[in-house]
Design a protein around this nucleic acid. Sequence first.
RNA 1: GCGGAUGGCUGGAUGGCCGCGGCAGCAAUGUCGAGGAAAGUCCGGACUCCACAAAGCACGGUGCCGGGUAACGCCCGGCGGGGGUAACCCUAGGGAUAGCGCCACAGAGAUGAAAACUACCUGUGUCCGCACAGGAAAAGGUGAAACGGUGGGGUAAGAGCCCACCGCGGACGUGGCAACACGGACGGCACGGCAAGCCCCACCGGGAGCAAUGCCAAAUAGGGACCGCGUGUCACCUUCGGGUGGCGGGGAUGCUUGACCCCCAGCAGGUCCGGGUUGGCAGCUAGAGGUGCGUUGGUAACAGCGCAUCCAGAUGAAUGGUCAUCUCAGGCGGCUUUGCCGCCUAGACAGAAUCCGGCUUACAGGCUAUCCGCGCAA
Length: 126
Amino acid sequence: MVGTMDRPPAVSVCPTIAILKKRADFLRAARAKRSGTTGFHLQARERAAGEADGIRVGFTCSKKVGNAVARNRAKRRLRAVARTVLPPHGRDGWDYVLIGRADVTATLPFPQLVADLERALAKVHQ
RNA sequence: GCGGAUGGCUGGAUGGCCGCGGCAGCAAUGUCGAGGAAAGUCCGGACUCCACAAAGCACGGUGCCGGGUAACGCCCGGCGGGGGUAACCCUAGGGAUAGCGCCACAGAGAUGAAAACUACCUGUGUCCGCACAGGAAAAGGUGAAACGGUGGGGUAAGAGCCCACCGCGGACGUGGCAACACGGACGGCACGGCAAGCCCCACCGGGAGCAAUGCCAAAUAGGGACCGCGUGUCACCUUCGGGUGGCGGGGAUGCUUGACCCCCAGCAGGUCCGGGUUGGCAGCUAGAGGUGCGUUGGUAACAGCGCAUCCAGAUGAAUGGUCAUCUCAGGCGGCUUUGCCGCCUAGACAGAAUCCGGCUUACAGGCUAUCCGCGCAA
């Protein structure tokens, strides 16, 4: 099992991770870089100076994902993936938005989701 | 044992590692954290704001009877009707002499009855084929329904014309709180169905909803346009400023009438446009509370009392992610074959959003109680 448990200790590299709550932030992120994977979509944006500190992340699961149970489950898995991957791989000063997809976000093996996010981050950071 | 009927319960378990929200705490930490339907948003309430004398009309809902409840369209018990061998199930089930409307097709005729054709009887005529007049409403044919049915008497032929039984209506009596049930003098039989077509009757109902509502902060404007009312009148008092009363006008959130009340030079009210915020706090979770046990009343729903116990409050929205083991169901394989082991797959419906009581709908699998029919055994 690769991505599961042996993460580096979240000390030096790890800035605080905040949750996006404002609709405006989501809209701004949607106009920036994006990258699709099998399990989800990633949107990422480097904030202007002085906007906020740390890494910020938001999650979106529309009605297309399914009923309330399916949406919640997809969102929770995305949250778990973000918590695993972002501390080592995310960049300070960026906003990330993870968008769930119908069926696959809830059913794909967890290690694959982790690998997907790592790859997608590398892509948008270019 | 097989088949069936009606309820009730459950809705995977345990443990690592990593997390989230509320509360308490300086902190460490502690503690609590989705459902039987949280769902659909279909009823009923609590709560909040607005409106509110009252009456009438309109509109909407409910609709056998009795009870339960904060209330209900819910629940319990009973009655009528229908289905089933039975357990049991289904049932919008007030009024058709208040009125209107409808009853297709077929049929002569579809609702106060009227009776055409074939057929029946009598009379007259007759070219012996039948025609005309009258009687009758039994038989035939249509239809879901044709104004009682069967048998007998009776008659020219017939007919409730008469009689018996059945059906129908039914004064009255008995039982029941009632719906209703049972009996039934009498009536020769008239009085069809549809009210889930309008309607009538009885009862109930003000409107909008937690994005209700209240407070705070910030920011911008410190606005523009339009509408509506309008400088009443009389009497009395007066310190001459004004005050009181009557008349008149205006004001009622479905409409009309309208008691009381309020207003009638205030610089206020209403509508629209433009601009800003789309933040925080309260409401916000303990209430007609749930559950269990006991007890009292009641057939029951339920109510009273006692004890114990439990009680999420998020707001881009917490209550989880992942791994393992076990459990349960199915499949495959193996073996030491009433069983055991291994591997694989599957574990439903579904996520609180102010809170309660219901209803409806969805649901893998499992457990359980009572009852009925058949078969076998005794």
